[in-house]
Design a protein around this nucleic acid. Sequence first.
DNA 1: CTCCATTGGATAGTGTTACTCTCTAATCTT
DNA 2: AAGATTAGAGAGTAACACTATCCAATGGAG
Lengths: 216, 216
Amino acid sequence: MQMAELSGASGVPVATVKFYLRDGLLPPGEPTSATRAAYDESHVRRLRLIRALADVAGLRLDQIRHVLAVVDDESTSCAEALGTALMPRTADAGPDPEARRRVDRLIRRWRWRVGPDSRNRDSLARALSVLDSLEHPMPDEMLDRYAEAMHQVADAEVSSVPTDNRDRAVLHAVVGTLLVEPVLASIRRLAQEEISRRRLTGRLRKGRRPRRPARG
Amino acid sequence: MQMAELSGASGVPVATVKFYLRDGLLPPGEPTSATRAAYDESHVRRLRLIRALADVAGLRLDQIRHVLAVVDDESTSCAEALGTALMPRTADAGPDPEARRRVDRLIRRWRWRVGPDSRNRDSLARALSVLDSLEHPMPDEMLDRYAEAMHQVADAEVSSVPTDNRDRAVLHAVVGTLLVEPVLASIRRLAQEEISRRRLTGRLRKGRRPRRPARG
DNA sequence: CTCCATTGGATAGTGTTACTCTCTAATCTT
DNA sequence: AAGATTAGAGAGTAACACTATCCAATGGAG
């Protein structure tokens, strides 16, 4: 397929596809002449991924470039990809050693092994530090609750990563991390809305709801 | 306190404070003369909140304006605030009725009550639809897992909202929703990194880890 | 073979967002 | 009286993500 068809299949305007090509986000097509190149399904998929990372995960193009580089780099494993590749908000601020220590204690409590250059540690420390500065501190108890919930969730997620093919595995991991984040956030808000509503109507008993869905 | 001190206490440059005042993000100080106004701690807190919503939650200024309007509006309850106020990514795309139906089924399975104009329903549908288009569909089974985890988390969170004071309650709910999102995301990534690492080293047994933190 | 649409490649322009700067006149401090 | 600070208004700027225009080469229709 060539440019017009690629644009049509992906829903991305021709001018923007050219821009992504220039920017190195989209690999070039197979040149068939001086003014023609052939694209294939992989280009369509890549374009859709770029748009999803931008629109749904809210990444900027330089972050998307970084993510794609990791996906394309055959030498990175899933764990490395998860640890270093995904840095959605750049952590530029000061470290705040107190928050950093709290994060390290959390990691130790759960006996997690985390790469020393993992951005996730910094972004968590930063978020906790900001919550402190807003006089809305996060108790360790609540952190552990989050860790428990996320550990369960992550276990199921990692189980669903294909193990046969490295490329598919890393792509699955990256998509499953970055693009599922808004899914989790939305579900959390829906649950908060429900529970908040339930408290208002006087139904104050806790843990009464089934832990498993109805009619499941 | 006046401008210079407000700027110093909040860490926001004078020019930016003036810009926020003009933009209606920061309420004006009490004017003491034609070229002077008095600010107080509430202005410092508001500025810190604005920066946190922008830097940590990634909201744009118009979204922050909307959030602040809800916080300031005495007539909105917590549930309303959670349902409608928080629309971090504007859902402008087409509806995709299939994804919408999946979300409605999820909500019904869990017997959640959701406001008919809740943005959360749309943003979840949009995220699911995008995952489909990436050939990375989200099974209902996994959605239920997420719902279970988020229901547990939300229950603890809503319990921690103060009930005596409406203003503090809504602020707590909004901060606890928007600014805790990156906390959850970071913890999820740390857990994913750990579990992914564990799978690599051949420790394939599931659910072996303590559900409660060590030394807790 | 001619003619016109399409393409690759390059460059320049646009709209949005979030500030940042400059200026003026009034006022405060010393 | 003099220098600094401020409110308020407007213009300027930097980053980002496109979007438009141009050109020469090519491909396909007739």
